[in-house]
């Protein structure tokens, strides 16, 4: 997440999607995105390297 200004991203991305955030919404939403980003950091890089095809799923 260090290469990523979450608050700026939140404001810009919301605007682009037509979500007009109130000032008091920005920080809680950015916090949530930050939390999900911390989870993404647990996804091992080698998986991306090993599987470059489009996502597929079979149970």
């Amino acid at each position: 997440m260090s290469d990523f200004d979450v608050r700026s991203y939140t404001v810009a991305m919301a605007e682009m999607l037509g979500i007009h955030l109130e000032p008091d919404e920005i920080d809680p939403v950015a916090d949530q995105i930050e939390r999900v980003g911390q989870l993404v950091s647990r996804l091992p890089r080698q998986v991306d390297d090993a599987l470059t095809v489009a996502p597929r799923f079979r149970p």
Partner: peptide, 18 residues
């Protein structure tokens, strides 16, 4: 709201891991 804003890159990485 946060869910709607996530980068596509994150979702695709999660699906590849899957």
């Amino acid at each position: 709201v946060a869910a709607a804003l996530l980068p596509a890159d994150w979702y695709l990485r999660a699906q590849r891991l899957r």
